[in-house]
Amino acid sequence: MNQDKLDTFTLDGQTIPFSAGQTIIQAAIAAGVYIPHLCFHPEFKPHGSCKLCTVKVNGRQTASCTALALANLVVENNTAELNNERLTLLQMLFVEGNHFCPSCEKSGDCQLQATAYELKMMSPHFDHFFPDRPVDATHPEYLLDFNRCILCSLCVRASRDADGKAVFALSGRGIKSHLIVNAESGNLVDTDFSSTDKAAHICPVGVILKKRVGFAVPIGQRRFDAQPISATPHPIAKGDA
């Protein structure tokens, strides 16, 4: 490939190089710039559903995980307008499910929570839906707490694309959309889910949890206790460095 000179675009005035085929968020992460995101993961095909990574490209909002980087684009990211919109999206996710952080073992290591800290979400703002979403504790090693699902579909993609399985799928429509597992019983224990699956370790929130290891890391030492998510390199980006 001819890479003598990479094309560039600007992100909040900063020049960001990119290679052909990279999306805006991929180029930003490679350049060490944080764009809030939840359903995006560097290892998987972009989904574009959470809309947290919405940026303004040449004056128009678009999801940076699905928008290809193009030469000379003018991209806005860290602006009050966009951050306010992202904050509202977060508040929507918080009222849509049942997110009780104090009793969640993912607390401190949760991408939803850390992103909400980053964007200074002080309250969920809207009226809560308080949906009824029973927990699936059938599997001997893993627990599914659907109350916290944000429908990012990372587990669906990981199971399908990395594990070659189809343990998870989305069902329902609209506000009734929900995660299901691939078993007639509807229970995780009756799927071919395994603790070594990529899907077992991909959930950005506290839905897919390994049993009997919760709260092992003391408060103060968890992933996002030390520094905010914006200063926490993506595990993959870090690995690349």
Binding site: F100, P102, M122, S123, H128, R133
Partner: peptide, 18 residues
């Protein structure tokens, strides 16, 4: 001022809501 998780989102008591 809403102080703490329960005032902010119902907290532990709200887990009876289902």
């Amino acid at each position: 001022i809403a102080l703490g998780a329960c005032a902010v989102n119902g907290g532990l008591p709200a887990q009876r809501n289902h």
